[in-house]
Design a protein around this nucleic acid. Structure first.
Lengths: 153, 153
DNA sequence: GTGAATATTTAAGCGCGATGAAATTTATCA
DNA sequence: TGATAAATTTCATCGCGCTTAAATATTCAC
């Protein structure tokens, strides 16, 4: 009754509607902070995965080291990031989030969560358990795929 | 057994992992096209909701009319959009996607679909029916919330 | 029909993202 | 040790997005 093909369609539709909404909201929030998308992406990377060298940011954004360095410059200037010397390799710098930068990301996540909360409340109570279970499976499957992809590279 | 709170958490976790993956992929695709985010967003708006006047684009991006006009200029120059006079109001212009522009968006959607397909295949077959049903509910609920929000404004 | 409102465009100017080229400092290794 | 490689920065330059201010064309209201 629910073929693989139908599941793919259901996922495709969900991804479309979810992306349209969450992306739009995210772009607006980021614009409101006064930061650019790559700047905010960098803050998020540091928030979720901790401090790193400039070279990781360069790779993440897929730009030249010069571009990344200048972008970090502005973020340091505006108080979102700090540079520190890497004790193991004095050529490299460790880029870290300041409290200010961490707060900005946390606020963005809070905005996103407000939306998902209203979505949860809007679901028919009879469906909540099934939907919750399904999301757990999807989240787990996505994590596994991300791991697989990481190992490929 | 699955409280509202647990559902909210499941949704929150899903949003986090989904956004991290799809956002990253989307940003990379858009960068690869040589277009900026607002440019590509505009192409997508036209793809999904059809032609519109410049004023709609202005509202969508939340910028001045001047900014939108100039952005459309570049998209017309590069062959993604066309301007036509609005027959009902000769002050206004109808902005439409060219075949070239439509193809670009279609390719981006195809990239996203490849990911959701691999995700569907990676799910335990025993869970597929339940997940499919749940996604249908979620998609419907999200569409309803979007409608409600549209009416509020 | 005349004046106000609307839709869009043009122009000047700023900051950011990005690049290539060159410089600096520190690590590696033969 | 001494050449080479690596991590980052600085500089000049360009295009884009955005704004404000001003211009143009058209519609609407009285």
């Amino acid at each position: 009754m629910f073929s693989t093909h139908e599941l793919q369609n259901a996922l495709k539709d969900w991804a479309e509607v979810f992306m349209a909404r969450s992306m739009h909201e995210w772009v607006r929030y980021v614009r409101g902070t006064g930061l650019s998308m790559p700047q905010f992406s960098t803050l998020m990377r540091l928030y979720y995965r901790g401090q790193c060298g400039l070279s990781e940011i360069t790779a993440e954004l897929d730009v030249t080291a010069a571009a990344a360095s200048q972008m970090v410059d502005r973020l340091v200037r505006d108080g979102y990031l700090a540079r520190a010397e890497d004790p193991n390799d004095r050529r490299a710098k460790q880029i870290t989030l300041t409290d200010h930068g961490r707060q900005l990301v946390a606020d963005g996540i809070a905005v996103r969560n407000r939306w998902t909360e209203s979505l949860a409340e809007h679901l028919d109570p009879a469906e909540r358990a099934a939907v919750g279970q399904a999301l757990r499976h999807l989240t787990e499957a996505t994590r596994q795929l991300n791991e697989m992809r990481k190992n490929e590279r």
